[in-house]
Design a protein around this nucleic acid. Structure first.
Lengths: 144, 144
DNA sequence: GGTTGTTAGTTACAAAATCAACCATTAGCT
DNA sequence: AGCTAATGGTTGATTTTGTAACTAACAACC
């Protein structure tokens, strides 16, 4: 049982997780300290900021977050007046979510930081690594 | 605010997380359903399986898991008789962890599945992507 | 030899994620 | 129309994590 040949550092699920965790640490600090947000919350914020008005369901499809997470994130963001919810006229189960002016401001602020942060991460890698990495990650991200 | 240029799918912390989550889903099913283990638990199990007897502290250093997580994982694994704990003679704060026969069996079983699973993931990528990906992830994983 | 500071590991409590059951509404079928 | 199933979203109970405070043992210094 001593020092066998399996290398944990080469096992993709583990390695990916290590990289994901390490590389989101600092950004987490920002949305946490600056806006008191959770990961789920900035994600919802970003979805709305990027794609504009959408429903919780759509956010779920895109982000693969579970609907309860989204539901609670939306609640918090609504409480803080970062978004508004309007029930659809045709289908009254459906709710349209949209950033408020304040929400938009928070989004743009965080987006700027995200872009800067991402640039910093990219600097750790060569151009080729960056390109191939993102390509590969996208393949892995689509489950199946 | 509609459809701005920022791409969430290109933001590394997000992309990494999506890939990590997607690519660990099936393996998670295995250690969960088959051994009722948590992520922290199989990680501890693997550390001991790979490196042999070690202390909780060492596991923490290698895995970057917080010591409370490790403490709890060790407890569970000990309850299930997957490992034994022996206090060090020199330094009685220190505890040596070691897999039992049963623990070793579980480890080898899961390791086999992990290897197979990893091979499956690798198949989604070209050889070059595989090499570059792992290289890049290792760089990102070392924080700083 | 006693005081202070560290270290390995645990525990208690709060925060968050998960899972299942739950409304309310709409769709589909007969 | 009336019944059943499916859908969008919420809620509550349980599990898991995170944070801080805590032991117990050791180290270092005076």
């Amino acid at each position: 049982m001593q020092h066998d040949d399996f290398d944990l550092q080469d096992f993709l699920p583990y390695l990916l997780n290590q990289a994901a965790e390490a590389s989101s640490l600092e950004f987490q600090q920002v949305y946490k300290d600056r806006y008191g947000m959770l990961r789920t919350e900035w994600r919802v914020l970003f979805h709305l900021g990027i794609y504009g008005r959408m429903s919780a369901k759509e956010i779920g499809q895109r982000s693969k977050m579970h609907k309860t997470k989204i539901s609670r994130a939306v609640q918090k963001l609504a409480e803080r007046r970062f978004l508004t919810r309007t029930t659809d006229d045709q289908d009254r189960r459906l709710e349209w979510l949209e950033l408020t002016t304040q929400g938009g401001k928070a989004y743009r602020d965080l987006r700027a930081i995200a872009m800067q942060y991402d640039a910093g991460l990219s600097q750790k890698l060569t151009d080729r690594e960056n390109a191939v990495l993102r390509q590969a990650l996208r393949k892995l991200a689509q489950q199946g």
